[in-house]
Amino acid sequence: MLDQTDRKILEELSGNGRMTMKELGARVHLTGQAAASRVARLEEEGFISKYTIEVNQQKLGYSIHAFLYIYTKSISHQPYLAFLDENKKDVVNHYKISGDGCYLMECRFSGNEELDRFLTGLNKHVNYKLSIVIK
């Protein structure tokens, strides 16, 4: 069971996973050693599963951020999944969902030509509904 201090630790680490245990302890009113012990326990119990970074995709040249609802044309999804595997550099996240559509895909593209190439290939396997992120 998580107490308020554990929740505050998770909140602080979510904002900055690189802070020192001394800094974390000061923010949650513990010593650095006590904070480190709590973090170790949170990792062991699976509340913290990994540490990561957030990359600025715009600076990397990926100016188009899109979400696609995927509607399969047949009961066999294998050709679609094979297409995804071949084009995984464009796909940020891919989820099998219930509700509107069979899958939800988040993608990044460097420009309209890359987006068009992807959509042309995708349409050979499934139908889709495209939404472009504005801001």
Rank of each mutant, 00 (worst) to 15 (best):
L2Q: 14
D6W: 00
E11N: 10
E12C: 06
N16R: 12
E23N: 11
G25T: 03
G25R: 01
V28Y: 04
L30E: 11
G32V: 04
S37G: 15
R38C: 06
R41A: 08
E44R: 13
E45D: 03
G46F: 10
F47G: 00
S49H: 12
S49Q: 10
K50Q: 11
Y51T: 11
Y51D: 03
Y51H: 13
N56A: 14
Y62M: 10
S63G: 04
I64Y: 05
I70G: 01
Y71S: 11
T72K: 14
K73Y: 08
I75G: 10
I75Y: 14
P79S: 07
P79A: 03
Y80H: 05
A82C: 11
F83Y: 08
L84M: 14
L84D: 06
N87L: 05
K88Q: 14
V91R: 00
H94K: 03
Y95K: 04
K96M: 07
I97A: 02
S98D: 03
S98H: 07
D100I: 01
D100E: 14
C102A: 14
M105T: 11
R108I: 03
N112S: 08
D116H: 09
F118W: 07
F118G: 03
H125M: 09
H125S: 01
K129Y: 07
I132W: 02
V133W: 02
V133S: 15
I134T: 14
